[in-house]
Design a protein around this nucleic acid. Structure first.
Ligand SMILES: [Mn+2]
Ligand SMILES: [Mn+2]
Ligand SMILES: [Zn+2]
Ligand SMILES: [Zn+2]
Lengths: 152, 152
DNA sequence: CGGATAAAAATAATCGTTATTAATAAATAA
DNA sequence: TTATTTATTAATAACGATTATTTTTATCCG
């Protein structure tokens, strides 16, 4: 994928989220734009701190609370997926804002999206077996990424 | 399953954990016994508070910190599975202390263990596709349990 | 442009959990 | 048995990421 094509994709995503914000009657502020630009550009499921650090480079006065509020707003309009963990840390996916599996490296913290075809099958199995009406799900695999596995 | 058979199963599980504690050189105290009895008897993936409340009925002076420490110890010797959530709440499975999928009712809080055969297949798929060395996983389905679905 | 009001910044509060400390109980040695 | 050591408990303080609150600032619409 060329750098230019990549940039276009990012801009398309940004425009879409901006449109969604206006659609829902929310204001587009420079702070919000800065946060969602970071989310749209990042390939790495960034944490709040990572987003905050990035945004501050071009917007030194922004408050951490504003970053939290903006992310919360993007969650509300279903344009970001939050991966909250039990240790209170969270990572965010601004590209695929719907449930999907993740591979999490416990050594370097990298988070990756695999494409798994047999997940739907699994959901069906769970539904028929228990009578649950499944609304959403969360699937995390933990282990060592390719890089960390080789360095061990 | 008869009530008697149920009691026997619970006692077997308690005995196993007690043996594991001694095996690892930890003392068996009345407080620890009380906590693991609740865990072994519970079918419902209890929370810390739920365990604390149960234990206090027969052990009114026990401290909440002791419950936390005991659970932490049982995690350490791999005899309880912790399901930690992003909202800081945790639920515990004292029956199957290894990773397995869960069905979580978002209305009544009930947590249930389904038997899903196609999970291994999914793990293999993730491994081959990404080069990750998968060590463990976590799979939660969220929705409405059979009871709550009918009451809606 | 105003003026209504949403949003930002700064800061305080929250609340499960963890750490700390002193007291107690169990194990071991003498 | 009694003394000594060590693990465990109970009580309570500290923690820290997130959320709530308050005041100030900026956006949006006519
Ligand atoms: Mn993702
Ligand atoms: Mn379970
Ligand atoms: Zn890694
Ligand atoms: Zn239910």
């Amino acid at each position: 994928m060329s750098a230019k094509h990549q940039d276009l994709e990012i801009q398309t995503r940004i425009d879409h989220i901006l449109a969604r914000l206006r659609e829902e009657g929310f204001r587009v502020t420079p702070q919000r734009l800065a946060v969602l630009e970071v989310l749209a550009a990042s390939e790495n499921h960034p944490s709040v701190e990572a987003i905050y650090d990035q945004v501050r480079r071009r917007f030194s006065t922004i408050s951490l609370a504003t970053v939290y509020k903006t992310i919360s707003l993007l969650k509300e309009i279903h344009e970001v997926l939050e991966l909250g963990f039990a240790d209170r840390s969270s990572r965010y996916d601004g590209h695929k804002p719907y449930p999907h599996p993740h591979l999490i490296c416990t050594r370097c913290g990298r988070i990756q999206d695999p494409e798994l075809s047999s997940l739907e099958e699994l959901t069906r199995e769970a539904t028929t077996q228990t009578g649950f009406e499944i609304v959403t799900h969360r699937l995390d695999f933990f282990g060592l990424c390719n890089d960390c596995r080789c360095e061990e």
